[in-house]
């Protein structure tokens, strides 16, 4: 079967910045792809090209087999998008925003009304639907935009940090709805988020993107097991024998105990505890997607951070010397 989304050497340059750099990717129908990456990695730019808001500098993108550069209008019939930035109309009511959206996407009156009702219920906005959006709180606005993006039941759904600013229960509600449309309608979902837990629980595959390039692409569990180890903190007297067990990749003394990186934790924890002499406290920290993310992209943030602080320090020094 042909992939729902396909990009071939997709590239976008803004004058001197290459925001997206020869991205090639295939996403099959019904798959959820989590798009992770530090700020400015090129996630939004990629999504904008896929939903035909931006023309690529070079390369091509296909949505459901349709060329996004040549037939943007056809592509837009297939896609739905929730933007990173607020994009609802302040002067209109929530209901009007949704209704206009339904009209733009050619829904007929009956199904539009039914669907709007359903979406308002799911996002908990029924009571405020008649108020102008400018009277909404930030989170309510976000919910409205989610309702709007899902309204016309797109085949491919782009979610750019959809749950930004939502409270935990609203977030969970949206997650379960996304799970539902995925299994009921086989909606293909491309999701960017900075909440690792969200990416982990929703995505079939994760693409980590940095400086416009994909630097890792795999299922969340594969990424975790290939790039991270579970950590065990043991307090008490630990024998050298235990610390030298073959499944331990490294250990470090921390305070009154050890921080130990363990491969295959579930299988091996029993053996580790048997070999350790006298354990008074155990703490286990499972590897998370966040560890993977930091390992893949974290160093660079560090370096840039140092440069920046150096810059600030320098300017303070300069400022002082000028004052004198």
């Amino acid at each position: 079967m042909e992939p729902s989304v396909k990009t071939v050497n997709l590239t976008k340059k803004f004058s001197d910045i290459t925001a997206v750099d020869s991205l090639s990717l295939e996403i099959s129908q019904g798959e959820t792809l989590g798009f992770l990456g530090p700020n400015g990695a090129g996630k939004t730019t990629t999504i904008n090209m896929l939903c035909t808001l931006l023309r690529p500098t070079s390369g091509s993108a296909y949505i459901c087999g349709i060329d996004a550069v040549k037939y943007p209008l056809e592509v837009r019939k297939k896609t739905g998008i929730i933007f990173q930035e607020p994009s609802s109309d302040d002067m209109l009511t929530g209901y009007e925003n949704l209704y206009l959206h339904a009209m733009l996407y050619g829904m007929n009156k009956n199904s539009a009304e039914k669907k709007i009702k359903e979406m308002l219920f799911i996002t908990g906005l029924e009571k405020r639907a008649g108020d102008q959006v400018r009277t909404y709180s930030g989170g309510m606005r976000r919910r409205l935009e989610i309702a709007r993006g899902l309204l016309h039941e797109p085949a491919v759904l782009f979610l750019d940090e959809p749950t930004l600013g939502l409270d935990p229960s609203a977030r969970r509600e949206i997650w379960s709805y996304l799970g539902k449309i995925k299994s009921d309608r086989k909606t293909t979902i491309i999701l960017t988020t900075h909440y690792m837990e969200e990416a982990d629980s929703l995505s079939d595959r994760i693409a980590v993107i940095d400086r416009g390039k994909i630097i890792a692409l795999d299922s969340p569990s594969a990424l975790k097991s290939s790039l991270g180890e579970d950590l065990v903190f043991l307090k008490g007297k630990i024998s050298d024998q235990a610390l030298n067990l073959p499944f331990i990749t490294h250990f470090e003394k921390k305070g009154e105990g050890y921080e130990i990186a363990v491969k295959g934790l579930s299988k091996n924890i029993k053996k580790l505890l048997e070999e350790a002499e006298d354990v008074s406290e155990i703490e286990i920290r499972r590897v998370s997607l966040e560890d993977v993310f930091l390992k893949l992209t974290g160093k660079k943030i560090d370096e840039e951070g140092k440069e920046e602080s150096g810059g600030v320090f320098e300017s303070v020094v300069r400022y002082n010397s000028v004052r004198k």
């Binding site: 808001l53 933007f83 709007r148």
Partner: peptide, 14 residues
């Protein structure tokens, strides 16, 4: 500026 235009630009309207 208010990003409202995006919603229309992404919709299937020429």
């Amino acid at each position: 500026r208010l990003d409202f235009l995006k919603e229309v630009l992404a919709a299937p309207i020429s």
